[in-house]
Amino acid sequence: MIVYHGSIEKVVNPEIREANRPLDYGYGFYTTTSEKQATLWVRRKLKGKGGKGYVNLYELDETCYKDLNILHFTEPTEKWVDFVMANRTTKDFDHPYDIVGGPVANDRVYAAFALYESGLLNKEELIRELKTHVLSDQWLFHTVRSLHYISFKEAKEVNL
């Protein structure tokens, strides 16, 4: 499997980094199987700053599926909502997974989550709403061990 990471720099040697804000799947190194999504991440980081960024391409060694503790959500479900909410709202929340994959919450999805958090949508309504969106995926490499299963192939330059 090929995964992409959007950044303002070439990332030949990925690292696990603590986030400065709550993220869907916790801290670590985020990737996607969508080059288009990675390009959008780069452009978001460049907005207002100008310059250039990179879509970094990696190959995933699929032996990770038998060697690592992986959680994969194929679509928005109650378990996915609970997992994302725990990562976003529980201080110091951590999980035991080496890799987590599943839908990425974009700006429209964040709006639906806000309605859920405020009690205007229940969990079933939230999931029904989310399933109407075409969601890209994201793959979080959460442990140093998980990073050993991706190898850098190239970095493609992206301009605003």
Rank of each mutant, 00 (worst) to 15 (best):
T89C: 11
F83Q: 03
V42F: 00
I127G: 11
D82H: 07
P14K: 00
W41N: 03
E35C: 03
L121K: 02
H72L: 10
F93I: 06
K47V: 08
L40P: 01
L57N: 07
N69R: 09
K49E: 12
E117H: 14
E75A: 05
V104R: 10
E78W: 11
L126K: 01
G53I: 00
Y116K: 10
V55K: 01
H72R: 11
S118D: 13
I70C: 04
A19W: 05
T63V: 09
V81F: 08
L120T: 13
L121S: 01
E18T: 15
L121C: 07
L46N: 06
V81Y: 08
T39V: 02
N20C: 08
L71V: 04
W80Y: 10
L57T: 15
K91P: 08
T63K: 13
D98F: 04
E18S: 11
G48L: 06
V81C: 06
K47E: 05
V109W: 06
E18H: 07
T63W: 12
D61I: 00
V104D: 13
K36H: 11
T77H: 08
V109S: 03
N106T: 12
E15F: 01
T74D: 09
A114P: 07
R44P: 11
E62G: 09
Y97H: 04
I127N: 06
S34L: 05
R108P: 12
P22R: 06
R128W: 14
A112L: 13
W80C: 00
Y25T: 03
T89W: 13
N20E: 10
G53S: 06
E129L: 14
W41R: 03
Y97T: 03
N106E: 14
D92R: 11
R43A: 03
V100C: 08
R21N: 01
E124N: 15
F73C: 06
D24F: 04
K91S: 10
N69M: 07
D67I: 01
V42M: 04
K52S: 15
R128Q: 14
N13W: 13
T31N: 00
L121F: 07
N122D: 08
F93R: 12
I127A: 09
E125A: 15
E15V: 05
E62F: 08
D61S: 06
A112R: 01
E129A: 14
T90P: 13
G50Y: 09
E117M: 14
N20I: 07
E78F: 07
N122Q: 10
L46Q: 08
R17S: 10
D94L: 08
G119S: 08
A114D: 11
I16R: 05
E124R: 15
G51K: 12
R43S: 02
K79A: 14
D94F: 14
F83V: 03
Y110M: 13
T31A: 02
S118W: 12
N122T: 08
L71F: 10
K49Y: 07
D98C: 04
L23E: 02
N87V: 07
E15I: 02
E125Q: 15
W41D: 04
P14Y: 01
V55H: 01
E124A: 15
I70L: 05
F113D: 02
A105T: 15
F29Y: 05
G119D: 09
Y97D: 04
E125N: 14
E124M: 14
H95R: 10
T90N: 14
E15G: 05
W80T: 03
